[in-house]
């Protein structure tokens, strides 16, 4: 492999390895690009599109697009922020999200993203789909009302747990997460120790008996907005 390449993110020079994605390079440089489906350690997926940036003027998902030498990336522009707000609003309106009494509240990446992007309410017509809840497993619960189809559980189950318990079925707006085909969680071979259980960004896959343990004020996003950990990596001048 050849040496590092330099790219420009919002005018800041960032050094990246050839083949590295824009998002990974930005992370290392302490520049936060909003994202929902991406999770370090899992294969890039490119489904939520929240990480959309422009690279040499063309919009692309930064989590799946590799850097090229001299690439000019725009990330924090009003146009892109607005696009991300719209995408996050779409995720809210296509599912059934009631943050005020959701046990993931305060630890939810979707909710935190809405706060970070400054979304007061969704502008899209609510669809209120009828979706299934599966609580047949003694320790694990899946509530599809809150699923944002990020595919993290699919990837974790396949690539980390070596099981392929989760997968997508259907298409378009009818797409949903399935367990081993049409099985119930109880019969799926999923274990409470599986990585797939811990990667859900929202309150769709949950461990039973852990709800509301952490008091308000100490939850994951109570003190700092989502992405603050990445921004903390930026070298202080």
């Amino acid at each position: 492999m050849s040496g590092p390449v330099t790219i420009l993110i919002d005018g800041v020079e960032v050094s990246a390895r050839p083949g590295q994605t824009i998002l990974d390079a930005a992370d290392e440089a302490g520049i936060y690009i909003p994202r929902l489906c991406h999770l370090p350690g899992l294969a890039p997926f490119g489904s939520c599109r929240v990480c959309t940036v422009t690279a040499n003027g063309r919009p692309c998902a930064s989590c799946t697009t590799p850097v090229t030498p001299g690439m000019i990336v725009e990330n924090d522009t009003e146009r892109l922020r607005e696009m991300r707000r719209q995408i996050v609003e779409m995720l809210f309106s296509e599912g059934n999200h009631f943050c005020m009494f959701c046990e993931k509240s305060g630890n939810c990446e979707l909710q935190a993203m809405a706060y970070r992007l400054g979304i007061p309410a969704s502008r899209y017509p609510g669809i209120w789909p009828v979706r299934d809840v599966d609580s047949t497993h003694p320790d694990i619960l899946i509530d599809r009302n809150r699923c944002i189809l990020c595919g993290r559980c699919v990837r974790a189950s396949r690539d980390v747990d070596g099981k392929q318990v989760f997968g997508f079925v259907g298409r378009g707006h009818g797409k949903r997460i399935a367990v081993l085909g049409d099985a119930r969680l109880r019969d799926s071979g999923v274990d409470v120790t599986d990585a797939a259980i811990d990667v859900c960004p929202v309150g769709a896959i949950l461990r039973k008996g852990t709800a509301f343990r952490v008091p308000i004020g100490q939850r994951r996003f109570d003190k700092e907005p989502i992405g603050a950990d990445i921004e903390a990596r930026k070298e202080k001048p």
């Binding site: 490119g46 779409m90 995720l91 309106s93 189809l149 378009g172 707006h173 009818g174 797409k175």
Partner: peptide, 15 residues
């Protein structure tokens, strides 16, 4: 006909 993979297409077409 949307495959449903990405948000703008899956949800955008429905809206």
């Amino acid at each position: 006909e949307s495959c449903g993979y990405c948000t703008p297409c899956r949800a955008g077409t429905a809206f």
